[in-house]
Amino acid sequence: MTETQSTAIAVTGLTKSFGNLYALRNLSFSLNKGEFLTIFGPNGAGKTTLIRILSTLTKASSGEIRIADFSFENDSEKIRRQIGVIAHQTFLYENLTAEENLRFYGRLYDVENLPKKIETLLSEVDLQLRKKDFVRTFSRGMQQRLAIARAMLHEPSILLLDEPYTGLDQHASEMLTNWLKRLRSAEQTILMVTHDLEQGMELADRIAVLVKGKLVLNQAQQEIDPKKFRQTYYDLVEKDKR
């Protein structure tokens, strides 16, 4: 496989500023197909800005990004077809039922064989029996499970996860972790940003740390001692504060 064929996300010199405030500074990294990269960072490190840029919601100030070999300049619609986004906000409509929400998003993505796909996904996220219920009657955990189904509906080749564990109870967290493990075994490319060290470490092939918009660590998970990582992370964050 050539380098281009195996690269799912390639980011070179990415900078994002809001006036004089720099959210991301000259960020460069790449993610191979089938890899799971977790980016840790404290609040305000630029994690959500990075996800927003990669998902085409926000334009970068400078730098080059390629996703699934599509350029951000000309192929943003093709890129959106390749990505699925799970964030702490679920993007679900409370006045629609679970099934109607999936049908709505499925039609926006031109998903083929939609009714069958909806049935399968609802079973997978264990919401088959609640498919006719309004989303407003769902708990936070159930909404997040439905959000996973929404994100997977169009079979994206790349998943972008922005603090997906926020507000989830123990059961919902375990369900999300199991789901992500399954996707990882199926060689799904995943980029997750979080400040939850345990969840992020458990799942990732590669670990990166983002502090004040700069990538201060980017290593394979095997090269990192999980017992020492918490201290390493705090040292990196504190070092940048000084």
Binding site: E77, K78, L92, E94
Partner: peptide
Amino acid sequence: DTGCLQGLMLAPMD
């Protein structure tokens, strides 16, 4: 308020 606008902006359409 619900973030659904982002959901719409993520869809592959103009």
